[in-house]
Every structure is written in structure tokens, then in C-alpha cells.
Design a binder for these strands. Structure first.
Length: 792
DNA sequence: GCTCAGGGCATTTTT
DNA sequence: TGCCCTGAGC
């Protein structure tokens, strides 16, 4: 292994330092995976046993890729023995071994987020709370956040600060829900995603002997994407590093975009201070993008205060400026993008698969899809429903879960009446109520002998319950001596799931059947793989299969066979990927940021998000914004995002209206613009908001919802007179409308709809409306508001 | 216990 | 605009 030729000096230094802890700050496109790969290889070459190395990633995909690359460099037997995987998969395996120490059985279930939300929902119902105030998704998010910060229900309940906050926010009972939620999961012998980490940290804290075992074993720990770690993950890393004190964390603070999920950028920013003599390496050479793209991204991120100073540079070609496209509407935007794609494929040597469209929210994909279909552009959307989320698959999985964990309430709820067995809501309600009163007895056991446990049902229902539970018991018995595939096949037969799916000849029915077949195939593959790996410690049982499935996501089931299609995905999903051509669409104030910005921290994360988007591009980056967009049931008007102005203009090809900078309606201003002050757009403005740590309400909070509906209507009558009339869709503000400025037949130019002709005027005063026929968008009725005439 | 119509509602989400 | 949930009605 000749590191001299394989790595640049920065990379090499990072690889070769193994005596203590280190932080590797890896800028976008700087060869991070390469460094990680060779670092592991280097450790192995210098005599470290593969069992002593722990490598943690965030996605299965990242883990797989790293293992594949390591296999190419070192002996595959060594590579296989590395302890390597996602935080969740590594620690869920450890927890199965140590289950007794945390009061669960090794067969514990992992609740996915849908299960978790269901539990929350059930509890809210049981407590007779208003689910308008206590929204299950929001409550679950809150629980997740608390867990991510290692706050237990009792600690939470003891904090008066929490108490007051929850009172103010109209969720005074949150602490109680949180407490019940944890208890309910425990009774079900289940844990949610967050629990995997929380239980691990707790296990290590409460059982020093167990911690010693693992901390002693792992002589070297590598963690990828450290900027995305949350408080628990950081804590676990420190615990495991307590013996050998050799940790290498890799990440890029400039790409920390997951704070909404509890990621703490401070974990990487302050990591150096955690260990004595912790060294800092910076990988600053970007091998991915053109100089222009790298520089443009640099000028954007330069505005952030909390970051590790670095200067990412590229020695690739200079590259062209970033084109900024201005569109009237989301449809117009999609059309422009589609046209550009078509022409670049036609005229240049560009493949569809070299192109990605990145957006903020998944819902933005629809308009693009429509347009792509119209233009016969092949595409694929990432982030849809994952295979394992489909109803029929979740049903089969629920049966499997119940087989190994008879306490699993969510699984039972799901399939007790699938296929229909006459066990409806009433029966279920009674059954689960009794089960909650008897947490010691598995709910399935109660179902097996309902009358014996005093369940208040009639004989017929009792018989149905017994029949169902009996079947489950038989399957569970068979499971003791069968492999995962055999038992799944039998399960599909006995439950009639397969027969029912086969009998359904509708399109959806056939697709369900196909999915079940595919699932069975996946179980088969799993068994095969385990046999081939020949690892005697891994049993080919359902528990292991379920563990893998519970921690798998659509990213993993996505077939990576590379047909020639355009990729559509959210910016978040694009992290870590790269494309020759990148289109960033919907770059408007409404979407970037889309919600209220309350602190500089959030503002900076939005900037980082935009940074991530730009740095996905290798050669060409195009940014577009739409001045009107149909969103949340109404047309919303907006202006280019402030972040666009954070990029140095030298790297941008701006549309005319942004160049002059004078035509911009500031949606945040309380009054309409003034010819004297509108002339310059202060690009420094965002950073002038609030000093570091200043959490006061920023001027643009809330503005986004009410103000953005204003837009500009410019009229030019036959003469030279120009008048500008602002239009609004809400009637909330009082103002003087100057309908006199408009007359039927006038040609007008509207910010969002383009050119048009006034058909007629309706109403007067603040109810004045103009019916205008727009060239592109047809007839619109605009309510006229705030007017100001300017003579030119 | 199932179906369908209408109201409420809508960031990002590697596990 | 479309999805998801609820509740009325069979």
C-alpha cells in the first residue's frame, strides 16, 4: 500500500495519525471515504486486529460502501471481522446480547416510527386529550427530541422550565404522555429507534463491567458524519473511548443539516476539547467540483459564525457561472428546467443520469414530474414509500414480530383482524385494556385463553380469539426449529395472506401479491447470505431478519442499477452524493427558509442546507426560483431567497430583475417600497440580524406567512405613464386601492403571472378587483391593495 | 365491521 | 392540490 501515491499530504497525515484521538474536518468532495478506507487499512496493516476496530456510520449504505472499499484494499476475511455499521445496527446487536441487563428479552421488537406514533396516539386517546392540541406526530417528535438529549420522563417532569413551556404551548400533559409512552414500549418488550441509543448509553452507565468489556475491546473507533451525531451518540462514543482514548471522528461542520432531528453541530465543533492532544486535520482540497462552484459555495458559508475555519479549494477547471433562473410560477419553473435538460441532453454530451434536481420538500416533485412526463424526460424520485412501509409487507412483518415477541402490542393490533376474523374494534379495545392491566402477561397469552383471564367477550368471539392465538402458537413452536424462510412461507399459507393476495385480481391486488413474493425472496436472500457468511454466531432466525429489516430504509431497497434517468430528491437526501449537473429549484424566501427563523443558529443551518445543495454539483449548477407557487392549498407569492444574495455575485448569472435589484418587493417591509430606498439590496443584511447567541425575535419572523402574498403589478398604458400596483390575496390590511390606475384594455405586467391585459374592474375601495387575462396563466382575478403611483 | 364522502391539513427525516 | 382521518350510513 503506497499511501504516497494514493493520498494527498493532508489526507495522508490524517490517515497516519493513530496514536490518539483526532478530528478530520472533511470539506465537500474532499475524499472523505477514501481517507476512512485507508485509515482502516492502515490500522490493520500495523497489526491491529479487525475485532478491535469499531466504525460507525449513519446509513446502511455508507456502511456497505465503506466495507466494500475496504475489502478491495485488505484481506476480505479481515474486512468481514470489522465491527462496522450504523449506530443503530451495531448497538441493537449489542443490546440483544445484553438484553437481560436492561430488563428486556433478546427478542425485543424495534418499533418503527409508525408504531411509535400509534402508541402515542393510543395514549392520547386513553387520556381523553384533544388530538388537535396534542398532535401525535408532534408529540412523538418531542419525545424523540427528549430522548436524543438523554432526558428521561422523570427528569423531564421534574424540570419546572419544561412544565411552564408545555403549559404555554398548550400541552401541559406532555410529561405524562412521555412517561406512559416509555412504560408502554417496555411492556411490549419493544424499543423505538431512539431507545436503541438511549438504552445503550444507559447500559454502559449502569453496568461498568459491561462497558469495560466493550470499551476494552475497541482499541480504535471511527465515526463518520460526526456533525450529525446527537447528544446520546456523542455520549456513547465517549463511553466506548474511555479505555483506549483513540477515536477518529470525521465530518464537515459546514454540512450539518439535521438539527431538527437532534443533531448537535457542537459535537464536532468542540470535539478537540474532549480529549487531550486531540489533533485536527483538515481536508480542504475538493476533487469534485469546478472552482466556480466551490468558490460560490465558500462565499455563502463564509457568513456563518459557528464553524471550523477552513478554505476549501478546487484545482479543477474554472467552470461556468451558476445560472439563476427566474420563473413566474412553479409550473413555469418546471418547464424551464425541463427545457434546459432536454436541450443539454440533445446538444451536449450529457446523460440523464448525470442530472439531479434538488428541492426543499418532497411535495415539490409533483409539478416537476408532470412536466418531465410531458417532455418525455425519464426520471426517478427518491424518498417515496419504502418497500418495507407498504401495507401488505408491514402485515407480514407484524406476524413475524408477534411470533418472536408475544408482547408486541402494535404488531398484534395490526394483524389481529387481517385477514378479517371478526375481531373488531370493540373486542380489541377490551383485549388491550386488559393487557395493560396485566403487563406481566403477554397480550397473546390473554388472547389464547380470553375467558380464563376474565376478558368480557361472548363465546363466539372467545373462540375466534382462541383460534387466532392457537395458530400463532403453532407457528411460534415451528419457529423454534425452522429457519426464517420456511417459517415465513408457512405463515403466509396459514394466515391465508398469500391466498387472499392471489385471489385479488385488481391492479393493486396484483401488485400486493408481487410485493409479498418479493418479500419472501428477500427472506430467502437473507438466509442464503447468512449461510454463505458461515458465521456460526449468527442464527438464521426471524429475530435477526427482523432486526435488519427494522433498520433498513428505502435508501437500502432502492435499486442502484443505473438506468439513464434524472434523479429527483430533497437536498437532505442528496447529502453525500454528486452529479455533473445539479438544478436547485424553489429557491425562494417561502421555502428557504420555509418556516419562521428564530435564531441565528437556524439561519446558519439554512445556509448550510443551501451549501450542501450547491456542492453536489461537479460541473454545472443551476438555481431557480418561482415567484408564485401553489402550496398548502393556495397560491403563494415570493421573492428569491435571501441566501441567493449571500453568494458573491461574481459567480452568478443573475436574471435581469435581480441584477438591477430595484424591482424587488420586500415582503417583510411593513409598507410598500419606496423608490428612494429600494435601489440597493443589502447582501449583508442577513448577518446583520442579531449578534451571536442573540435569540430575540428577528424582523422577518412571521412575515413569511402574511407578507409574502404581496406581489407587484406593473401597468403601462398607451402613454408613458407607469404605475405599480401591489396586489394581495388577503384582505387583512386596510389601504387605499387606486383602481383608477387601471383601466380595461391596459397591458400589465405582473411579477408572478407575467404579461396580461386588464379585462375589467370590479368593486371599489378595499374590495377593488381587477380581472386580468394573462398570456401564460389565463384569467386571474386580483384583489388590489396598497397602491403607489410613480410617474416616469 | 366495512365503505365512502367531506373536513382538516400540510418542512427537511440517514435509523 | 392531494392525503389522511373521521364519522355517518349501510
Amino acid at each position: 500500500m503506497d499511501l504516497d501515491n494514493l493520498l494527498n499530504p493532508e489526507q495522508r497525515a490524517a490517515v497516519e495519525y493513530c496514536d490518539g484521538s483526532s478530528v478530520i474536518v472533511a470539506g465537500a468532495g474532499s475524499g472523505k471515504t477514501r481517507v476512512l478506507t485507508y485509515k482502516v487499512a492502515y490500522l490493520l496493516q500495523h497489526g491491529m486486529s479487525p475485532d478491535s476496530i469499531l466504525a460507525l456510520t449513519f446509513t446502511n449504505k455508507a456502511a456497505r460502501e465503506m466495507r466494500d472499499r475496504i475489502m478491495r484494499v485488505v484481506d476480505y476475511r479481515d474486512a468481514r471481522r470489522l465491527m462496522m455499521g450504523t449506530f443503530h445496527s451495531v448497538f441493537s446487536r449489542i443490546l440483544r446480547i445484553e438484553a437481560n441487563n436492561i430488563g428486556l428479552t433478546p427478542q425485543y421488537t424495534i418499533y418503527d416510527s409508525a408504531d411509535s406514533k400509534n402508541v402515542v396516539k393510543t395514549i392520547i386517546k386513553e387520556m381523553a386529550l384533544d388530538d388537535k392540541k396534542y398532535k401525535p406526530a408532534a408529540i412523538h417528535q418531542k419525545i424523540s427530541m427528549a430522548k436524543n438529549h438523554m432526558v428521561t420522563p422523570s427528569a423531564y417532569a421534574q424540570s419546572s422550565e419544561n412544565y411552564y413551556r408545555d403549559n404555554t404551548n398548550g400541552v401541559p400533559q406532555f410529561a405524562e404522555i412521555f412517561q406512559r409512552y416509555c412504560a408502554r414500549c417496555r411492556e411490549a418488550n419493544a424499543m423505538d429507534f431512539d431507545d436503541i441509543l438511549v438504552y445503550t448509553a444507559t447500559l454502559f452507565r449502569q453496568h461498568p463491567d459491561v462497558l469495560q468489556r466493550y470499551a476494552g475491546r475497541f482499541q480504535y473507533i471511527l465515526v463518520d458524519e460526526y456533525q450529525d451525531t446527537n447528544t446520546v451518540q456523542h455520549a456513547i462514543v465517549l463511553q466506548l473511548a474511555s479505555v483506549h482514548k483513540r477515536v477518529c471522528v470525521v465530518g464537515d461542520d459546514a454540512q450539518s443539516i439535521y438539527s431538527f432531528r437532534g443533531a448537535e453541530i457542537d459535537n464536532i465543533l468542540g470535539f478537540q476539547r474532549v480529549f487531550d492532544n486531540c489533533r485536527l486535520f483538515k481536508l480542504q482540497r475538493n476533487y469534485r467540483s469546478t472552482q466556480t462552484i466551490v468558490e460560490a459555495a465558500n462565499t455563502l458559508i463564509a457568513k456563518n459564525r459557528s464553524q471550523i475555519p477552513k478554505k476549501v479549494f478546487s484545482e479543477n477547471a474554472l467552470g461556468g457561472a451558476i445560472d439563476v433562473l427566474c420563473a413566474y410560477s412553479d409550473y413555469d419553473e418546471a418547464a424551464q428546467v425541463a427545457q434546459r435538460i432536454s436541450s443539454s441532453v440533445r446538444r451536449h454530451d450529457v446523460q440523464y443520469s448525470d442530472i439531479a434536481i434538488l428541492y426543499r420538500t418532497n411535495s415539490q416533485s409533483r409539478v416537476l414530474e408532470d412536466e418531465f412526463r410531458k417532455n418525455a424526460i425519464p426520471y426517478r424520485i427518491y424518498g417515496g414509500q419504502s418497500f418495507y412501509q407498504r401495507k401488505e409487507i408491514k402485515d407480514v412483518i407484524a406476524y413475524m414480530r408477534l411470533l418472536v415477541n408475544p408482547h408486541d402490542e402494535e404488531a398484534l393490533k395490526r394483524i389481529i383482524n387481517v385477514p378479517a376474523r371478526g375481531l373488531g374494534d370493540t373486542t380489541q379495545k377490551k383485549l388491550f385494556e386488559l393487557a395493560h392491566a396485566r403487563p406481566d402477561v403477554p397480550v397473546l397469552t390473554i388472547a389464547a385463553r380470553p375467558l380464563e383471564y376474565g376478558l368480557d367477550v361472548n363465546k363466539g368471539t372467545a373462540a375466534k380469539l382462541e383460534r387466532f392465538a392457537g395458530m400463532m402458537q403453532q407457528l411460534a413452536d415451528a419457529n423454534e426449529y425452522s429457519d426464517a424462510y420456511t417459517i415465513t412461507e408457512r405463515l403466509l399459507f396459514e394466515t391465508r395472506l398469500m391466498a387472499d393476495a392471489a385471489a385479488d385480481t385488481s391492479i393493486e391486488g396484483m401488485s400486493r401479491k408481487e410485493n409479498i413474493d418479493e418479500f419472501l425472496g428477500a427472506v430467502h436472500d437473507f438466509c442464503d447470505r447468512k449461510v454463505n457468511e458461515g458465521d456460526e454466531n449468527t442464527e438464521i432466525n426471524i429475530v435477526n431478519f427482523l432486526n435488519e429489516v427494522a433498520l433498513a430504509t428505502d435508501q437500502d431497497t432502492q435499486d442502484d442499477s443505473d438506468p439513464n434517468v434524472v434523479t429527483l430528491m430533497t437536498i437532505h437526501a442528496a447529502k453525500g452524493l454528486e452529479f455533473d449537473h445539479v438544478y436547485i429549484v424553489g429557491v425562494e424566501e417561502n421555502l428557504f427558509p420555509s418556516m419562521m427563523i428564530e435564531s441565528e443558529r437556524e439561519l446558519e443551518e439554512e445556509r448550510r442546507l443551501f451549501y450542501v445543495a450547491i456542492t453536489r454539483a461537479k460541473e454545472v449548477c443551476t438555481i431557480s426560483y418561482a415567484k408564485s407557487r401553489f402550496r398548502n392549498g393556495q397560491t403563494q407569492y415570493s421573492n428569491p431567497s435571501r441566501f441567493l444574495y449571500d453568494i458573491d455575485r461574481r459567480y452568478l448569472n443573475l436574471p435581469a430583475e435581480m441584477k438591477r435589484g430595484s424591482r424587488r418587493v420586500d415582503p417583510y417591509a411593513s409598507s410598500m417600497w419606496d423608490d428612494d430606498t429600494h435601489s440597493t439590496f443589502d447582501s449583508r443584511r442577513p448577518s446583520s440580524y442579531g449578534e451571536r447567541g442573540d435569540e430575540r425575535q428577528l424582523p422577518f419572523k412571521g412575515g413569511a406567512s402574511s407578507g409574502c402574498q404581496h406581489s407587484e403589478l406593473q401597468t403601462s398604458t398607451a402613454g408613458r405613464k407607469l404605475s405599480r400596483v401591489s396586489t394581495a390575496t388577503s384582505q387583512s390590511s386596510s389601504s387605499t386601492a387606486v383602481t383608477a390606475a387601471l383601466a380595461p384594455g391596459d397591458s400589465v405586467y405582473h411579477d408572478s403571472f407575467g404579461h396580461g391585459t386588464v379585462e375589467r374592474l370590479e368593486g371599489t375601495g378595499h374590495n377593488a378587483k381587477a380581472v386580468i387575462d394573462f398570456d401564460i396563466h389565463g384569467t386571474k382575478t386580483l384583489l388590489l391593495r396598497f397602491a403607489r403611483l410613480t410617474k416616469e
